[in-house]
Design a protein around this nucleic acid. Structure first.
Lengths: 339, 339
DNA sequence: CTGTTAGCGCATTCAC
DNA sequence: GTGAATGCGCTAACAG
């Protein structure tokens, strides 16, 4: 259309220079007018490259949140099966920082072309990211965004906002003058940043509304064999509690502790559509679940990484806030589905 | 891998016969073991065909539900930009059956290779589908599924289930002993099947729970210049009403009728993330909205149609229930996003 | 500075 | 039952 050869257009597309100002202008205009976007499949083909992509996330069990990320990742690999992708997965123990450190050096030694990273430990993740930058290995965050890093893209829900969503829905559901109890069932005493942010957002909202007295907290260690008894005793001692917020994915374990008397009286809201939580939605021991759409996070992360590796940049916005989905009994279907 | 030529493998893939039993067996095994799936981009390329796809839906305004379907469709076209797709759109007036009949014969005369159909009129849609079948033009339903037809795939939420979801959430947020009012703001007296199904599901649920006395109905004609007054008078006469279900996308118009006194006291739930409803979520005059994800519906419909045209069959399940998304103020972001 | 050219890969077809 | 040719958009090496 510009009356020039493909070579010239290619030089404009990749601004490699050596194009006369007139042609540059003319070609740029045409590209703009037609809102040209190179096709990723053709570009990948022509580049004659293979892309080694590593998904590096916490160890997971079937039907869990991180299993959802795996499913989204694999779906993406299938979707782009015409591109030469070598997909690898590596998991670490999210309750053991040494595991992360060891596995991350293993990740580095695999020399992948790009990494999708589900982080847990802040300090160690920053170190790892700096090493990746030194090696010029692009990375994308899913689930959590760690500051002081330079990811190519990031796909995570806004945890503060999701905390507000959790407490506001519970508030809507709750009879007036009842209290909200945040139960935090911990494992090994460690607590994720996401959980902390969610809790904080709820606390601040209650303070801001001047109803901090209606907010209670209970820490439970799942190691304790009698945590169920502790919870039940607490609830009996605090009959004003009408709603329970579980700021991590273990709402089903809390629901399982309650006797039928409590189940009928209390509303529980939690996170993540795990198999256990899905079951509790069905038997109505949990009122609703906030789904962070792990499948979508990993899928989008893969797309962004491929876009970066093939085009040298990510086409959509880098900051991609994942929309939280609210799941009640009636819309708890379709474990997977495209995006 | 089987030591045969690509031609032989191709005959196995499309079971065109003329393959020796030994080779058939050997090749089938290898395909199975490697869970081979042809790549749609390569197949489309090799077929040297162009696909004329028509999106045939009700006329829409910017920021409306059907505009969402358009966005999803266009996103799909972009996603498959390496396939030679000629995309067309045709809209009809959903309040005028003659418009549908006329436009549908126009659609037929365009002789598309496939149609994505957002239906409204049952009888006329069945007629149209039969004509499509005679012409061997495959079609996919979005939004609503019409019986006595043979679509290649269907992407729609379960309307009865969504009605239950609407009333159950409203029930959860409602103070005890308050009544639910279904307000049905109609246009030109016509009412969609979706609306009717949603209403029915709610009515049946209330009957089943023996609380039919707590369910009220109010039909409003938006043609009436004084429908706002009718609604306000009704609410003043029925102070027991605590929650309002709007079974179509016009919840914002209902919210706009209410004075501040009502707004504070009443909870409203409705359908579809239109610009108007989004605004009401933000200013808290509506409590929540059920989003039917029109973008996803059209996107998936396009994928299914391409899969059918290129492979001769649809890869995923044909019956694809779209998951309803519950939108509160806090998760009302991201107008679009993949899927 | 510009144009030419080969070729990437998978799926398909067709003359043998 | 074979195998060579073909389609596509894009890239990059190279010749002028």
């Amino acid at each position: 259309m510009a009356g020039v050869s493909p070579g010239t257009v290619d030089r404009v597309l990749h601004n490699r220079g050596k194009v006369s100002p007139e042609n540059l202008e003319k070609i740029s205009r045409i590209l703009e007018d037609h809102s040209y976007h190179a096709n990723i499949h053709k570009s990948a083909l022509s580049l004659r490259k293979s892309f080694r992509i590593l998904l590096f996330i916490p160890r997971y069990t079937a039907g869990s949140y991180w299993d959802g990320q795996i499913r989204g990742f694999e779906m993406g690999i299938r979707e782009y099966s015409d591109i030469d992708i070598v997909a690898d997965k590596l998991t670490y123990d999210q309750y053991d920082v040494h595991s992360f450190i060891e596995t991350s050096s293993q990740a580095l030694s695999m020399k992948p072309d790009g990494i999708i990273l589900g982080p847990t430990f802040r300090r160690e993740t920053i170190d790892f990211c700096h090493k990746l930058e030194k090696e010029k290995i692009p990375y994308v965050f899913v689930d959590t965004i760690i500051p002081e890093t330079s990811p190519v893209a990031r796909y995570a829900p806004d945890q503060r906002r999701s905390g507000l969503l959790l407490s506001n829905i519970l508030d809507l559901i709750c009879e007036k003058d009842k209290s909200l109890l945040i139960v935090n069932p911990k494992r090994l005493g460690s607590e994720s940043f996401n959980t902390i942010e969610r809790e904080e957002a709820i606390r601040e909202a209650y303070s801001a509304h001047g109803i901090a007295d209606r907010l209670k907290m209970l820490d439970l260690s799942m190691q304790d064999s009698d945590f169920a008894i502790i919870l039940r005793d607490y609830l009996n001692d605090n009959p004003d509690v009408g709603i329970i917020a579980v700021p991590n994915s273990r709402a089903n374990e809390i629901a399982a502790c309650l006797d039928s008397d409590h189940v009928g009286r209390l509303k529980i809201g939690g996170y993540d559509l795990t198999d256990g939580n899905r079951e509790c939605l069905m038997n109505e021991s949990i009122s609703f679940i906030l789904d962070q759409k792990p499948e979508q996070q990993a899928f989008q992360a893969l797309k962004a990484l491929l876009s970066y590796l093939i085009f040298g940049r990510v086409h959509e916005s880098l900051e991609n806030e994942i929309k939280i989905e609210v799941i009640f009994r009636e819309n708890c279907i379709n474990p997977l589905k495209n995006t």
